[in-house]
């Protein structure tokens, strides 16, 4: 399979689930064509609610519907919906309603629209909420499996998706295990924990380093909360060096989540790769991945530099 945006995989799977699960209702805030929620909306118009550009009201209305036995998915660009943090905190997380927040167009991978539309902090803010699950799939198969899981999930969740196409790291027979780390490559010189759009790039960069004699393990973290702490601690102890890679700020994202676990349970030298406490900008997705060193070449360079000069233990 060629490149495919995870938002498209989401739209296809949700529309398919609409047939078997009559309780699914879908909300969008004037971005249904972009988030791909319209695939569901055009098949099931009576269960699709165009809320206009009212993210807060969408959050509350979905919460109200959830109390009536419905399974709402609310969709927008990730930063527009997660930016309504306090509404999510009060009306979804604290009330513990089974609303899935679907944030598309995450990371610098959104491209030309620039920083105002870019979610670089969404994992950080959603992860801070009690009751909130955070899932970021890496490809088509994983996205579809995650959507199937979330359709039955009884608690608040945030699903983070890409605008841009991503390469496939899993086969069609992939089994998604909620809350479990997904090891893609063995290795003993260090472990890379990667999430979302950059998982494939991290894998390719690790394969290049393999040919130079650096043997890195690669683990995909699709469930960022609850984190598979046992797996992370074990991999850190077995390899002695940890890298995290994400298209997100290094503050509060996967890197922080891994560091929190390891600093308490298995202090290990580590390097967080991501967006370094800065804003994004306009450009092609590929151009931005090159500039911010999240493409295969950039990751190869960043990983190599880290492995050669690991932090002082």
């Amino acid at each position: 399979m060629s490149k495919k945006a995870t938002r498209v995989s989401f739209g296809e799977q949700l529309a398919a689930l609409g047939e078997t699960n009559p309780e699914i209702v879908v909300f969008d805030a004037d971005l249904a064509k972009s988030t791909q929620s319209l695939m569901f909306g055009s098949k099931y118009p009576e269960r699709f609610f165009e809320m206009g550009i009212q993210e807060q009201n969408m959050i509350g209305a979905a919460a109200g519907m959830a109390t009536m036995g419905k399974k709402p998915f609310i969709c927008s660009f990730s930063i527009f919906v997660t930016g309504r943090f306090e509404t999510i905190r009060m009306s979804i997380a604290y009330a513990d309603v089974p609303v899935t927040i679907v944030g598309t167009h995450c990371g610098i991978g959104i491209g030309e629209d620039g920083y105002s539309q870019m979610a670089l902090e969404d994992i950080s803010i959603m992860r801070s909420l009690a009751n909130m699950t955070v899932i970021q799939p890496a490809d088509d198969a994983e996205t579809k499996a995650a959507v199937r899981f979330l359709a039955e999930y009884k608690h608040p969740a945030f699903l983070r998706l890409t605008r841009q196409g991503v390469e496939q790291v899993h086969g069609e027979d992939y089994t998604f295990e909620f809350g479990k780390a997904d090891e893609l490559k063995t290795g003993s010189d260090g472990v890379i924990f990667a999430t979302g759009a950059v998982v494939y790039n991290a894998l390719k960069a690790a394969e290049q380093l393999e040919s130079e004699g650096v043997n890195l393990r690669v683990v995909n973290i699709h469930t960022i909360k609850p984190l598979d702490e046992e797996h992370i601690i074990r991999a850190a102890k077995e390899t002695g060096f940890v890298l995290t890679i994400e298209d997100h700020s290094i503050i509060g994202g996967l890197g922080s989540a891994v560091a929190e676990v390891l600093s308490e349970h298995a202090p290990t030298p580590m390097k967080r790769i991501g967006i370094y406490d800065t804003f994004g900008e306009s450009g092609t997705p590929n151009g931005l991945y090159e500039k911010y060193k999240l493409d295969v070449k950039g990751l190869y360079e960043q990983i190599k530099a880290s492995v050669q000069q690991p932090a002082v233990a």
């Binding site: 109200g64 519907m65 109390t67 009306s91």
Partner: peptide
């Protein structure tokens, strides 16, 4: 109490969602 409130401005949206669900069903 039907829903958690106290951060003002949110309960009406929730009530709206309840009314939408009743209509849908």
């Amino acid at each position: 109490v039907e829903f958690s409130t106290g951060s003002l401005g949110q309960g009406l949206s929730v009530a709206q969602g309840m009314a939408m669900a009743a209509k849908l069903d």
